[in-house]
Computed example of a mutant assay.
Amino acid sequence: MSAFSLTRVTAVLVKEFTQLTRDRLTYALILLMPIVQLLLFGYAINNDPRHLPTAVLAQDNGAFARSTLGAISNSGYFDIVQTARTPAELDRALSRGEVMFAITIPADFTRRVVRGDRAQILVEADASDPGATGGAVAALAALPQQALSHDLLGAVAPVRADPPFEVIVHRRYNPEAITAYNIVPGLLGVILSMTLVMMTALGVTREYERGTMESLLATPVRPLEVMAGKLAPYVLVGLIQTAFILVLAKLLFDVPMRGGWGALSVGILLFIVGSLALGFLLSTVARTQLQAMQMSVFYILPSILLSGFMFPFRGMPEWAQALGTAIPVTHFLRIVRGALLKGLDFADLWPSLAALGLFVLVVVSLAMARYRTTLD
């Protein structure tokens, strides 16, 4: 064996650069991944959400009530986006996830403030995600001392050091702020995405690499029949995974399961079928198992970061929320958490169910179009 040769090293180097130009998809994904991570972690992730959507039921429209609502808005944590007319309307907005806070100002608020008679306002928080509301709830502690500081002057000035009113906070759906109640149901969507999308993409791509797909293409089997036959066993795998996760969630973490089983069952089935169809679509684009795995990761990473699983959805900027809304995992998490923690069913969860149905329709159509191209 001769000594180290710079010429041979150069030859190998040229060979590798040539290989790079032939596998552009793989290396494009490698270069894109750190850019996507940098943008998401740098701009989209926020552990102290502000401008959280808030609904108000103001039964007292006096000056003190208006000043209190103004102070709440000026805190930066609350954006008043709805004005309810009845307690039922306020409760419905909170349970459906349209708002994260519901504020009730009682009819006798002004009278009690003037008399110094323990005036109160009620703030109900959607605590199904404790991390999303913790900062806003903490900001309410300073509200009674500051909200009416410019209003209570002269004859109505408080004679004691006590605050002019009290804020009563009710944490709904997760009053003890147990993180597992939010994380464990969310894991269902993440685990199904990681296993089903990647498993299907790798399995079908493996057949292309081994040449067994060519034999299948020579048969009169139609594209939809191929997809149905290949995905049906994985649907069963996804259902078994779902049952296993839900049973462990109850036994190990005592996650509340309040109902909504009809909507939850439909949502699970739609999400499983959509994830498998997405894996099939990726397999028609990828030429190797490595590419299939990389594209699967490229889909799973935003699903974890932008869906509200790890970080509060409402804490992200509007452009990131728009991207997150386009991700099916976001809607699936709303269905799972809404059914298990709030007991919501079809009447409340139909927007997320419709989004998952649209996702299935679009992905199946694209997969069929790609598969027909392969046939041709």
Rank of each mutant, 00 (worst) to 15 (best):
S5W: 05
T7V: 13
E16K: 07
E16A: 13
R24T: 14
Y27N: 06
I45K: 01
T54Q: 10
A63G: 01
L69Q: 07
S75M: 14
R85T: 14
E89N: 11
S95I: 14
G97T: 10
E124W: 00
E124I: 07
A127G: 06
S128L: 08
D129W: 01
A132F: 02
A138L: 14
A147H: 10
L148I: 12
V156E: 11
A161Q: 12
P163Q: 11
V184W: 05
G189D: 06
G189E: 04
V190C: 02
I191P: 00
T195I: 15
R206C: 00
E207T: 04
Y208H: 14
Y208F: 15
G211Q: 06
V221P: 06
G229M: 06
Y234D: 09
I245M: 15
L248R: 03
A286V: 09
Q289E: 15
L290C: 03
Q291G: 08
S303A: 15
I304E: 06
I304F: 03
F309D: 07
M310H: 03
P312E: 10
P312W: 05
E318I: 12
F332H: 12
L344V: 09
L349Y: 08
W350G: 04
S352K: 02
L353T: 09
G357W: 02
G357A: 15
G357T: 14
L361T: 15
V362P: 02
S365E: 07
T374I: 15
